[in-house]
C-alpha cells in the first residue's frame, strides 16, 4: 500500500501547501484516510502528523473509516429543509437501517447529510452514488434506491 500511495503523492514531495490536494488524492485512492496514509503524508511533506490529522478532520470531505459501497447523501440545504429534508432523512434511516453519518455493518451503505449540493430548485434533493434525485417523496425512496444502487 505504501508504494501505491507514494506514487499518488510523489508530485507533491516537500510541498507543504499541497496538503489538501494530497489528502483528496489519497482519499480518491483509498476511499478514506487511514492513519497509515496520514503518517505517510506527514513524512512526505515534513509536517507533524498531528497537523496533518488536524487539517484533515477540519474538512467535511474527509472520511476516516471505510465507507459503504453505496453512498447516499441527503441534502440539508435551506430549500431542501423547508421542503421536508428532515422527513426524507428519517425515511432513509428507516429504509437503510442505519443512522446518518454511519455505514452499514456489511459495508453496503453509507448514509450522511451534506450541506447544500446546489440543486435547490429541485428540493428536496438526495444524491445516491452519482445520481441526483430531486423532489424526493418519502413514500418513494425504495424506488430511488433501486434505481441508483450498485450491485
Amino acid at each position: 500500500m505504501e508504494e501505491r500511495l507514494s506514487a499518488v503523492l510523489s508530485p507533491y514531495e516537500g510541498r507543504k501547501d499541497a496538503l489538501i490536494p494530497m489528502l483528496q488524492k489519497v482519499q480518491e485512492e483509498l476511499g478514506y484516510l487511514s492513519e497509515e496514509a496520514m503518517l505517510l503524508i506527514a513524512r512526505t511533506t515534513g509536517m507533524p502528523e498531528s497537523h496533518v490529522y488536524g487539517v484533515a478532520t477540519f474538512y467535511a470531505q474527509f472520511y476516516f473509516s471505510r465507507r459503504g459501497k453505496n453512498q447516499t447523501k441527503i441534502c440539508s440545504g435551506t430549500a431542501c429543509h423547508v421542503k421536508g429534508a428532515a422527513r426524507v432523512k428519517d425515511a432513509f434511516e428507516r429504509e437503510l437501517g442505519i443512522s446518518c453519518g454511519s455505514t452499514s455493518a456489511d459495508y453496503e451503505h453509507s448514509l450522511e447529510t451534506v450541506a447544500c449540493v446546489g440543486s435547490c430548485a429541485l428540493a428536496p434533493v438526495v444524491v445516491v452514488n452519482e445520481d441526483v434525485h430531486g423532489q424526493v417523496q418519502t413514500g418513494k425512496i425504495d424506488k430511488i434506491l433501486e434505481q441508483s444502487i450498485k450491485d
Binding site: 492513519e35 507533524p48 498531528s50 477540519f58
Partner: peptide
Amino acid sequence: INAIDYAQRGVTSLISTLGNKPIADSR
C-alpha cells in the same frame, strides 16, 4: 515538537494527536 494540534472543528474540536491516539504513543 507538535505532538498535538487542534482536530475536528466547531463544538467537536479537541486537542489531539494523530487519530486521537494516546499521548504516550505520539511524539
